[in-house]
Amino acid sequence: MPPPRARRWPLVVGAVLAIAGAAVGLQQRQVAASWQERAVAIEEERDDARARGEAFQRQLEEVADALATSETDVGALEERVRELADEKAQAEDVATTTGVERDTLVELSGAIAGAVTALDGCVDQLFDLLGDAIDAFNRQGAGETVDVGPLNADRTATTARCNDARQAAASAAATADRLLR
């Protein structure tokens, strides 16, 4: 039988190896547990980062939608501004045209009023001349002597006044033609 020391040696080596193996196993277990804790922590960080990324993505989408809406609104506002500018230009054109038309009508109205006044004077003098001529005719028919000199003078003045009225009417017609073209 081998000496007790010699037999012990493999037992001691076996025990040391077993203790060393147990220590290494324990250490490996602790390292594995540490790595597992790290993995869990990293997974939690990853999940948190993913959630923040998704929230950020939603915010970006909301901002993109708001921007698209704003761009549409800006486009609509630009179109409305162009429409308003056109309306303003048309209103200014109408105001200018209305002013020109008003001035034209004032000028034409003055010309017509002058012609009407002249024609009224002509008609009044014609009625006076007609009345005087009828009186003279009736007096002569009654045997009275009638001096036709004043009647001839009235006829000449009436003819001149009526010619002036005709000229005023022709001038008003020419003004109307010129202004209304």
Results as ranks from 00 to 15, higher is better:
96 T>E: 14
132 D>A: 14
4 P>G: 03
80 R>N: 11
24 V>Y: 11
65 D>P: 03
33 A>W: 14
14 G>K: 01
51 A>P: 01
35 W>L: 15
157 A>I: 08
88 K>V: 10
57 Q>F: 10
90 Q>F: 09
125 Q>T: 10
102 R>M: 06
50 R>C: 02
48 D>A: 15
81 V>G: 01
46 R>K: 12
127 F>Q: 13
154 D>W: 02
181 R>H: 06
65 D>S: 14
171 S>A: 15
134 I>W: 06
50 R>P: 00
159 T>D: 07
15 A>R: 03
106 V>A: 13
168 A>E: 07
34 S>Q: 07
161 R>I: 03
122 C>N: 02
62 E>F: 05
26 L>S: 10
178 R>I: 00
17 L>H: 02
146 V>A: 10
93 D>C: 00
149 G>Y: 05
102 R>T: 13
133 A>N: 08
168 A>C: 04
67 L>F: 08
11 L>E: 08
55 A>C: 06
159 T>L: 11
64 A>R: 15
109 S>Y: 09
23 A>N: 00
95 A>T: 07
105 L>N: 05
152 N>S: 15
97 T>S: 13
7 R>M: 14
138 N>D: 15
20 A>W: 12
68 A>C: 02
143 G>S: 09
110 G>K: 03
13 V>I: 09
85 A>N: 09
101 E>T: 12
10 P>A: 06
89 A>D: 14
123 V>Q: 08
55 A>K: 06
124 D>A: 14
22 A>K: 00
91 A>Q: 05
130 L>Q: 13
52 R>Q: 10
96 T>W: 08
32 A>G: 07
118 A>D: 01
26 L>M: 10
53 G>T: 11
122 C>R: 01
4 P>C: 04
47 D>M: 07
41 A>F: 04
124 D>R: 03
75 G>Y: 03
5 R>Q: 14
148 V>R: 10
135 D>W: 02
39 A>W: 07
29 R>G: 15
51 A>W: 07
30 Q>H: 13
164 D>L: 06
154 D>N: 12
13 V>M: 04
79 E>D: 12
114 G>Q: 06
160 A>Q: 14
50 R>M: 12
123 V>Y: 03
34 S>G: 08
135 D>N: 13
106 V>E: 12
85 A>K: 08
77 L>Q: 08
116 V>W: 01
87 E>Q: 10
45 E>M: 03
155 R>F: 15
76 A>I: 12
180 L>A: 09
58 R>D: 12
143 G>R: 04
148 V>N: 08
174 A>K: 01
145 T>N: 07
153 A>C: 07
79 E>I: 07
73 D>V: 11
180 L>W: 02
